[in-house]
């Protein structure tokens, strides 16, 4: 659905995006992460035809963004990182204006606007002026605007920034709902735990170059990270450690605080084995919990933390 080929954008000497190749399948939610100044916003701007790439091309639904600007704009809903609002308009008028800009017929507009207002939970605000909304409300209004022409592709640049936890959860729900409707979503965010929950694929970009692209599951072998399990027993922790150390697939066992952290050899999993062994040896197994690979950790390992 979205595809870039050696996409580059230079600002003078600075390479904001360099030879970026990325593919996003239809119906995916693609999380785009990277440190500040990595080139996320630049890439998104090129995809929505607001910037000309220096080299390379990008396609949306098979359409070259450089050649078919207008068609691409019809397909895409874009929410920029700094979203402005027309402060003279009311919420309803604002949305209807964009409906008209996407040449939706006048008699259909009312229904559509009311639909997106409902979807984003803004019905009560429809006659408020746009600039009287709080930051989070404006963000939701931005999302409502993106949805107004029922785009196939959504490109959202940090849509959750400035939102309270509740609104974030709501946005997450909304994105899931949109995915169910078959939309392709590209989303950038600095809140990684959030992306973790909704994204099928992630791309990590640094200095304009893709350092990783794939599913969350792919990232583990990519980084050479082994799976870990946390084990908790009521008594005889030392003996349990002894027992577990002897098991073949297990590489390392250590005691952290009040639990035992077990690391497997690469590519092996053995939650069942641990449970069985412990129970057979009459340990009181309280909990057995796979340790999540945090996207944060992956992010820290993959990017060098240099901001340019």
């Amino acid at each position: 659905m979205i595809k870039t080929q050696n996409l580059s954008k230079n600002y003078g000497d600075l390479t904001a995006v360099g030879n970026l190749n990325l593919t996003i399948e239809q119906g995916d939610i693609f999380g785009f992460i990277g440190p500040n100044g990595a080139g996320k916003t630049t890439t998104m701007r090129i995809l929505v035809t607001l910037l000309e790439p220096t080299h390379g091309t990008a396609f949306i639904n098979g359409l070259d963004v450089r050649k078919h600007g207008k068609k691409v704009r019809r397909l895409v809903g874009y929410m920029p990182d700094f979203m402005g609002v027309y402060d003279d308009l009311k919420v309803f008028e604002y949305l209807e204006f964009f409906a008209a800009a996407f040449s939706i017929e006048r008699r259909k507009r009312k229904g559509i606007v009311e639909g997106v207002l409902e979807l984003t939970d803004l019905q009560s605000k429809q006659s408020a002026t746009v600039d009287s909304l709080s930051r989070g409300m404006q963000q939701r209004l931005g999302l409502a605007r993106v949805l107004i022409h029922d785009p196939k592709v959504l490109i959202l640049d940090e849509p959750a920034s400035g939102l309270d936890p509740r609104a974030r959860i709501e946005i997450r729900e909304l994105l899931r709902e949109l995915k169910r409707m078959g939309k392709t979503i590209m989303i950038s965010s600095h809140i990684l735990s959030e992306l973790e929950e909704i994204c099928d694929h992630i791309g990590i970009i640094e200095h304009g170059r893709m350092v990783f692209s794939g599913t969350l599951a792919d990232i583990r072998p990519h980084l050479g990270i082994q799976s870990k399990v946390r084990v908790k027993v009521t008594a005889n922790q030392d003996k349990a450690v002894e027992l577990l150390s002897a098991l073949p697939p297990i590489r390392e066992v250590e005691v952290v605080d009040d639990y035992i952290s077990v690391t497997f050899h690469e590519g092996k999993e053995g939650d069942g084995l641990i449970a069985r062994s412990l129970v057979e040896a009459k340990f009181d197994l309280v909990s057995l919990q796979p340790e999540q690979l945090k996207l944060d950790d992956a992010f820290l390992q993959l990017t060098k933390g240099m901001v340019h």
């Binding site: 027309y86 003279d88 308009l89 009311k90 309803f92 008028e93 209807e96 204006f97 964009f98 409906a99 008209a100 800009a101 006048r106 507009r109 009312k110 429809q126 006659s127 408020a128 002026t129 600039d131 009287s132």
Partner: peptide, 26 residues
């Protein structure tokens, strides 16, 4: 100022949207 503007009725978009929006400015 906000209260004053909030009291105005919602207007429907008529004709070319860009013209409409500019004319909507006070």
């Amino acid at each position: 100022r906000r209260r004053r503007r909030a009291a105005l009725p919602i207007r429907r978009v008529d004709g070319p949207p860009v013209v409409w929006k500019e004319m909507r400015k006070p």
